[in-house]
Design a protein around this nucleic acid. Structure first.
Lengths: 152, 152
DNA sequence: CTACGTGCAAAAAGTTTGCAATCGC
DNA sequence: GCGATTGCAAACTTTTTGCACGTAG
């Protein structure tokens, strides 16, 4: 991008605002708090630019619309765990999807290369792991109120 | 399903015909070989019925359109045994997605429960693993000729 | 001032649904 | 014949794009 517009700022700050993985409509919602007239098209366009710039990363889960998170260029927490990464230097994440509230959580671990799962002759370059279940908040809510409101 | 129509047969036999994981348009293509006038709507409707009957299973990979495969009938009659059973009892599949030819392959292994990847207090009920890379055929083709030509 | 960025509407792509005609049983 | 099933078109969802206007630099 070449110009610093209010919309771009609004889209980017939506992430720090929410502090979690967001879908495009969710970004729109947060960005509207700053620039009410922003359109969904602009959100998608800014997301594309931010992706190209490596500022954010796309998070795709099976059967879910795409989400986006602020890119973690050099993760200060967990690194150096997999020197011989199967991903040629690309730092990837795995996610937890709460089946109740629908929220997506970043996991801070990786099961490591899983070459052995692939048939012989296959070349594994990358893997994705998604966990499903209940997040701590929903487990907690469920423990107190067994009658949960209808899942989406 | 209550009626045995040519279309239903065509949709179902598309799987044995192809012997692999298929998207809805791919099913349509195969089914058209048997019932040329079949429509995509009918494919989707029959797929829904076959899913409800447990004859086929939906395969969703990150960022990919839904695919379907013939259901693995390891357990002929699944009772309503839902509950404490987590990963251990849930028979699921994992997949390999070839980044060159786009084909999806069923894996015959599972890394096992990965509860430890989730944050404390989270309840993991299910997990999905997707491997990406080159299938044997594409590795082979690439080794011989760098020309990228999907087998289609 | 000028080109990039924006909003809107329309288009793509994948999937679902309303409806009248059709066809299994 | 009855009603489930079909084909078509239209709706829907998520994302992209064409176009005229607006605005940053």
């Amino acid at each position: 991008m070449q110009r610093l517009t209010r919309q771009r700022n609004a889209v980017f700050s939506a992430f720090s605002d929410a502090g979690r993985v967001l879908t495009a409509p969710e970004i729109l919602e947060h960005a509207r708090a700053i620039v009410p007239e922003i359109s969904l098209s602009t959100v998608y366009r800014q997301v594309s630019l931010l992706l190209a710039d490596g500022e954010i990363a796309k998070v795709e889960l099976p059967g879910e619309p795409a989400r986006y998170e602020v890119a973690c260029k050099a993760d200060p927490h967990d690194h150096a765990s997999h020197g011989a990464s199967d991903d040629a230097g690309h730092h990837h994440h795995h996610y937890f999807h709460c089946s109740q509230c629908g929220q997506v959580f970043l996991l801070h671990a990786c099961p490591g290369p899983m070459h052995d799962l692939a048939p012989k002759g296959f070349q594994v370059t990358h893997h994705e792991v998604t966990l499903h279940g209940l997040c701590a908040a929903c487990v907690d809510a469920g423990a107190k109120a067994p009658k949960t409101h209808p899942p989406h």
